[in-house]
Write a protein that binds this DNA or RNA. Structure first.
Lengths: 241, 241, 241, 241
DNA sequence: GATGAATGAGGATTCATTCAT
DNA sequence: CATGAATGAATCCTCATTCAT
């Protein structure tokens, strides 16, 4: 895979196909159809469909890292709020975001059977936990958060966020995520935040630009107030599934 | 499907095939092979593979209901602990349990694409939330738990438990579940439990009997020493972060 | 097959199933579904599906014979007109009749591959040709028809009628049958009928009662003006496919 | 389907398979077996077996058109005779021809249930009627035929020809077609032909080349002696009636 | 007689992957 | 690089027929 444009094209196509069909029903043809290239070419660039998907996960981690960089300048509690909302609500329009999470979940689902996926997914998960811990640790250092075990809390936090999202995707009809978010603030953050600090609402930085990569329009400035819709697919995030 | 023995045989075979192959790679042949019947018989009893799997989900709900009944006599905090541990550690031997949850997760993953599964899964989810709420409500009534919003807390609880399990299944190498459990007790239950009540450890009743359920020989034992750390990946490799 | 009631029930069910599905898609289950008996019973009464269908053709011949008897008292030219219109337009409501002819045509289509069907169908065809010849011969005797070769003319007549009907069924969008009928009168009958005889219009006797047989309500009086709809299926004819 | 060679190969294989098994028992494997290609390739070129068969019907229309062009130079009565004999006796050796018409009849039989077939078959039928009308119309113009309604007569003509062939195929043991042909000449053509014109015997051009059509080597020979009585069942067993 | 259960032998279709050009 | 053509191995599902009861 020498040409990054080709890779981008394939990754974008994979993203779209995954959203539409889900992993279980994803065929090489589905991906090729969203490309101006042929199906055979996929096998020229990748040894197998599995390899391609594994690279796709890796690709998402890269996008996630780019997104993380954008939040560096926020205060810990702002970062925490941003992190939570990004996780629960993601970015992009609703339908696509849901589809995408669903598809990613399917890839995760294959992890126990598939070492390659497992490896890539763990990489993305490690990144996620590191960030959460870093935020908590920073907050303790700055005094915004009470003292506690950041590693354990990060584990709890992510379990809850992930569980909430998955349940919303696979089961819920009502606003399950809203319920969980509200309970999280009341039961978990209330303890964690220092006396005089309250949990900030809705601070989402720019979306992770998944598709924009191709034409290189995504600017990864660290600013947190520039949020605009950036491409027709609403792009997505979640390098950290 | 008049004969319950046949249904049980098919369900058990489905359970085993699902554990071994996962949903994505589950074939009608895999199921038939674990039966002394032919593949065609599956289609005699079910109109499609999908129908069969949907019935399997329903079958699990029935088993769950039976299990729930066994915990009716415990105190709310005991029930809560039992519920948590059942959720996190399940029953059955380790490998099988993991396999099974993995397969179930795959089925859940199909829900957004498959109305039938969605319907059955929601049924099972409703049951789960009801139970959690009931436990919390009872605890508030008896004074074991502090007063709080049981519905919201139940949502939070289940999100966390589900997330923890899913992450352990799909990503974790270390004892992720143990970490989350510990954090849950510290950050959530600590608030919920009344001053003088502490969270009971490891109250697992007998396993939900999936394979031998027909003759219902499992009797509820209140013993609290049956739990052991149980992940094969080695626990508490906290340094890994 | 001792019990004629059972045979009638099966034949009626076969008739209905044939109309609905056509021969190619006719399954034993389709027939059983239109019976209050089970599919297995069909194989108790017949050695194979093929046998059953062969008997069905035979059954139709019997019905056809009954119908023929009703026209005995008409004059040759009346009988000829009746014969033509019965052949072209049949009886019963339009949709059902079409369905039935289509299905019968499918059975005929199998004749080259299936000796049993061929045998039964030839029996019915012989009957048809005999009748046509008899009508022509009688007409020559009574002087209503000019002298000609009745056998050859019968062959021509039936070829045309059969072809017209088949084409209407399988191809035509317009009133193809009407066209042919009109051309037949002008080009064939005009020659055959004696100077002072004209071709009578629309003299259809009672329908052949296919379903009524069970409860035996069909009266086979020779009157030609009693035509009434007789059963819910519009019954049909065409023992003579 | 860019490569006409491959299409030809598939069409030829379909033709052969159809002759041997009939439509009802035609499987994709039967077709592939008559090809040096695999069964999957059929589905690479066609979305379904049905699509393939529909294209086969279309293919026949193309062949028919080619054949028609070859008769343009004959006089109307010669063309009429050629048309009749082509219809009744077709081309190819006896067995093959019968088999082929039988299979085509089966396909026609599916028309009421299958829109695709119906559409293709109507196209072929329209062509047939046009040709017949054209011949009649030309004859009237040249004075070879008496004045009459060409459309109606064409309808009659084709009904008779089609009926005769179908009956021969599906029912007759004797030379039914010969009988009908003879009656047709006597009862229909006798009226149509002008006083001094007689119906030419056996003007069959070369066969429609189904298998070698690609290289179009068949040249129209006006020879009139190629026709022989041709049914294997023995002709003129008139006593059988 | 009658039936529910059971099955073997297909048959259409799908799809990852290969390969000649 | 790129592709159209090709294929083998599966997989779901159908259905006539059998059989124990």
């Amino acid at each position: 895979m020498t040409d990054p444009d080709v890779r981008d094209a394939i990754m974008t196509a994979t993203y779209e196909a995954l959203c539409e069909h889900g992993y279980t029903d994803l065929t090489a043809q589905d991906i090729a159809d969203r490309t101006d290239k042929s199906k055979s070419l996929l096998f020229y660039h990748y040894d197998s469909k599995e390899d391609l998907v594994a690279d796709f996960v890796d690709y998402l981690v890269e996008r996630f890292d780019e997104w993380i960089a954008e939040t560096r300048d926020l205060t810990p509690s702002e970062r925490l709020a941003t992190f939570v909302d990004w996780f629960l609500y993601g970015s992009g329009d609703d339908d696509e975001r849901q589809s995408f999470h669903t598809a990613m979940l399917e890839i995760r689902t294959q992890a126990p059977y598939n070492e390659q996926y497992r490896k890539e997914l763990r990489k993305s998960d490690d990144r996620l936990r590191e960030i959460a811990e870093e935020i908590l640790r920073n907050g303790i250092e700055t005094g915004e958060f009470t003292d506690h075990d950041p590693e354990e809390t990060a584990a709890l936090l992510i379990a809850t966020l992930d569980g909430a999202r998955i349940r919303q995707l696979t089961l819920a009809e009502d606003d399950y995520i809203g319920q969980v978010r509200s309970a999280m603030v009341a039961r978990i953050f209330d303890d964690i935040l220092a006396e005089d600090v309250s949990f900030p609402e809705g601070l989402l930085p720019d979306e992770i630009d998944i598709e924009g990569g191709v034409d290189g329009t995504s600017d990864l400035g660290p600013s947190s107030e520039t949020r605009q819709p950036e491409d027709e697919h609403g792009s997505s995030e979640d390098g950290a599934e």
